[in-house]
Each structure stands twice: as structure tokens, then as C-alpha cells.
Computed example of a mutant assay.
Amino acid sequence: MNASGRPAPPRAPARRPAPLAPVRRLASRGPVRRLAVPVALLAAVAGAFAYVGAVDPDEPGHYPVCPLYRLTGLYCPGCGGLRGAHALVHGDLLTALRDNALGVAGALGFAVLWTLWAARAARGRPPLPGLPPAGLWAAGALVLVFTVVRNLPFGGWLRP
């Protein structure tokens, strides 16, 4: 009811934008604006890799020790990741794989996905859709299996 005591007129249903409206908005932006976020993310990742490449993780006192390893003696999925990133920056792929194979695979996956994202953004296309739930579960299972195997006696080749 409104202030005069009469029933309020029915509201018109909210108008939904056309499904392609975000795509049109993205395509109407200039290439510099479309690439701003991918380039900013790449700059942040490159800065982190540059720092790890300049400051050796094998020298004590520069990075904290993994809390899980310190408390339990077990390796988490990230243990050896800084040493692996340091080796990658210096072009030593075999050492990087020995330190943390999952981290190297993650860096490769990031490079591929970032390239696809930047190419689509440059053309004014929307980013790729995310992983379906089954893909996320598979990625989580892979990380879990990697973590368990590297802590078992026969998984010593996966330890940093």
C-alpha cells in the first residue's frame, strides 16, 4: 500500500541485460584498457620471480621455514617451491623439477592460461570460463596425491 492507502501498482519485472552485453562492453574498450589487468598480474608475478631469483632460498635467514615441516617434519605441496622458482629463473629446469615438480607444472600452467587470457583480451573477447567442478576436484586430488606420495618412503624422488 502507498501513503494514500491505495494498493501500490504492480512493478514491472526487472529488465535483464542481453547475454552479449558484457562482451560488447569489453570489445568497445581500447586495447590498453583491455590488457591492463593481465599485464598488471604478469608484472606482479614477474616481480615475485625476480625477487626469488635474486635472493637465494638456500641461504638461511631470507625466507621463513614451512610451518608444517617445522612442526611435523612432513612436506607440504609447496615445500621446495621457492628453490624450484629460483632454479627456474636461472634456467635450471631439472633442479626446479627436483625441488618441486608440482610448482613447475603450476608455473607452466600459469604461462599457458595467461597467454590465452591476454590474447583473448587483446581481441576484445571475454576471458576463458573457469574450470568445471570436476576439474577443480581433479586438481585438488592431484595436489593431495602429490603431497601424500612425497611423504611416503618410496616418494623420496619428489622431496625437495
Results as ranks from 00 to 15, higher is better:
Y69P: 01
L74C: 13
P9F: 02
A54K: 09
A14Q: 07
A96Y: 03
G30E: 04
R70K: 12
P17S: 09
F146L: 10
A50C: 09
W117Y: 12
G155N: 06
A21G: 05
G109R: 10
F49M: 10
G109F: 04
G78Q: 04
P9R: 12
A121C: 03
P10C: 02
L93S: 02
A101M: 11
G73C: 03
A8C: 11
W157V: 09
A105Q: 09
D58M: 08
R83W: 00
S4Q: 15
L42N: 01
Y69F: 13
P133F: 01
A121H: 05
S4W: 06
V148N: 03
R150N: 11
W117C: 02
V112N: 04
M1L: 11
R70M: 08
L41D: 00
Y75I: 05
R159M: 09
G140L: 14
R16M: 12
R123S: 10
L158A: 12
R125M: 10
G80I: 05
C76V: 00
A101K: 01
R125G: 01
L136A: 06
P17C: 02
A121N: 09
L74Y: 15
C76P: 08
A12S: 12
G156A: 15
R25Q: 15
T72P: 08
L128A: 15
C79D: 07
A119Y: 04
A96R: 07
P22D: 02
W114D: 04
P126S: 11
P13K: 12
V32P: 00
T72Y: 10
G53M: 07
A27Y: 07
L152A: 14
L74E: 12
F146P: 09
L94I: 04
V37P: 00
Y51D: 01
R98S: 14
F146M: 09
Y75A: 07
L71T: 12
A54P: 01
T147I: 06
A96T: 10
P22R: 13
L35M: 13
V32M: 13
P132Y: 05
R15D: 07
A139E: 00
R11M: 09
A12G: 11
A101Y: 03
L113K: 05
G80C: 05
R159S: 13
P17R: 12
P127K: 13
P126W: 00
A18K: 07
A54M: 07
L82Y: 05
A138F: 07
A40R: 10
L152V: 04
H62V: 06
A27H: 14
P64G: 07
A46D: 08
G61A: 05
R29Y: 10
P60S: 08
P19G: 03
G140K: 14
G135N: 11
F49V: 10
R34G: 03
G81Q: 03
A96F: 01
A48F: 13
A44Y: 02
A44M: 13
P9L: 12
D56M: 11
H86Q: 11
W137V: 09
A134M: 14
R159I: 02
V145A: 15
P7M: 04
A138G: 06
P77W: 05
A141R: 10
G106C: 14
L97C: 10
T95H: 13
D58Q: 10
R33V: 10
V148T: 13
